[in-house]
């Protein structure tokens, strides 16, 4: 399935957000996820089903002033 993750078009096998994070080797505890501009709560990652064409943003904290 084709989705857009952090601005990059990619082909993924995952069906849920949790599976997507696993596929991308990302620790779910350290990130916040937005799908089509809506924040998805961390406890919903496993049940949230992603679909073709979704625009997904995965963010975390980085150094800043």
């Amino acid at each position: 399935m084709k989705v857009r993750v952090n601005g990059m078009d990619m082909e993924v096998k995952a069906n849920t957000l949790m599976e997507l994070l696993e596929e991308l080797d990302i620790n779910p505890k350290r990130v916040v996820v937005e799908v089509n501009l809506e924040i998805v709560k961390r406890d919903k990652f496993s049940s949230y089903v992603i679909k073709e064409g979704d625009s997904i943003e995965i963010v975390n904290f980085v150094g800043g002033g």
């Binding site: 993750v5 952090n6 990302i26 963010v59 980085v62 800043g64």
Partner: peptide
């Protein structure tokens, strides 16, 4: 701290 996209291409992924 700042909020930024995770670098999904970097498999090392050290976190602040």
């Amino acid at each position: 701290v700042a909020v930024r996209r995770v670098n999904i291409l970097d498999r090392n992924k050290e976190n602040l």
